[in-house]
């Protein structure tokens, strides 16, 4: 009576437990991702950057009292790269560029992690409410999202940060306000899609409550695109954040790449290229690396875009 006993046997022999199945699936996904060389490059850079950010207090002497403030060495102002004690040179106010680059990574990691986690939570909650409730609630929430999306990202963030006044916290706030909308959109469309799946009907048929269906069936099956977007945003946020800092919306003297570029840009015409170049390069690397990883993730989770590689 058992259909195709041979295949059944094969299924049973090859795998043993749910845990192993899960591990196997994880390994398969990782392998698919690592098969793409650009993803590997991106991943390597990401790992290096994060390592650098995490080990900042050990590779450089932290500035006292606030390690996130640039140390000022007034005895060595505007020295070029290669000078003793200042491998990457100093800015026109005696700030060590290497210190800025390393602690800037830490600042960027802090910034992007905080903004991404906050925006994901806000976006997932609002998107879920909209998608799950539907009707008028959905309509109102999505029109609000449309309003937010209609204003260009950078200009919107700039406006909010400018209104709040120059500070690093305000940059975080401004970015959160700008970036949550995408998650709400993604989450809503995912939920509406999953809601129409037959297994949601099947879950209702066995008597599950709405909340339980949401937590067990809808949420786990709609989360991957959010994860991909979050990875891409890890890069974008640092890019926009650095722009805001460059314009001067961050506290002066903070070890942040945008601030460093802004501090050094006046010296470019005088040939002091190093102060803006190195931090600028870091912003570039950071944004590039996370975008490469994000694209790799998208290829793995959404096979439809795979051919576009």
């Amino acid at each position: 009576m058992v259909d195709s006993p041979n295949t059944d046997q094969i299924y049973l022999q090859t795998r043993d437990s749910a845990w192993r199945v899960r591990a196997q699936r994880g390994w398969e996904l990782t392998r698919t991702m690592l098969a793409n060389p650009t993803t590997v490059i991106g991943l390597t850079i990401v790992v290096l950057l994060i390592l650098m950010a995490l080990s900042a207090p050990w590779i450089t002497e932290p500035n006292t009292p606030d390690a996130y403030q640039m140390p000022r060495d007034w005895s060595a102002v505007r020295v070029p790269p290669g000078s003793p004690g200042h491998i990457l040179g100093t800015t026109n106010r005696g700030g060590d560029v290497l210190y800025g680059v390393i602690w800037g990574a830490r600042t960027s990691l802090k910034l992007s992690l905080m903004v991404v986690s906050l925006t994901v939570v806000i976006g997932v909650v609002i998107g879920s409410v909209a998608g799950f409730t539907g009707g008028r609630v959905d309509e109102v929430l999505m029109r609000i999202v449309d309003v937010f999306l209609s204003i260009p990202e950078l200009i919107f963030a700039l406006a909010i940060a400018a209104v709040l006044g120059p500070s690093f916290t305000n940059i975080i706030l401004a970015l959160v306000v700008v970036f949550w909308v995408k998650y709400a959109r993604i989450m809503r469309s995912q939920i509406i899609r999953i809601k129409q799946s037959e297994y949601i009907d099947a879950a209702r048929v066995i008597g599950d409550s709405k909340l339980r269906i949401y937590l067990r069936d809808i949420l786990p099956n709609s989360f991957t695109p959010v994860m991909v977007q979050a990875t891409l945003d890890m890069g974008n946020i640092v890019l926009v954040g650095a722009t805001l800092s460059f314009i001067g919306l961050s506290e002066a003297g903070i070890a942040e790449w945008g601030v460093l570029v802004s501090e050094g840009q006046a010296g470019i015409s005088a040939g002091r290229w190093w102060a803006p170049t190195f931090p600028g390069l870091m912003v570039f690397l950071w944004a590039l690396a996370f975008n490469l990883v994000g694209d790799g993730l998208r290829d793995v989770f959404d096979p439809r875009t795979e051919s576009a590689r």
């Binding site: 799946s197 037959e198 297994y199 009907d201 099947a202 879950a203 067990r216 069936d217 786990p220 099956n221």
Partner: peptide, 11 residues
């Protein structure tokens, strides 16, 4: 349901 492949939660 008609299609058992669709009526089971893949996760």
């Amino acid at each position: 349901f008609q299609d058992p492949g669709k009526a089971l939660n893949p996760a």
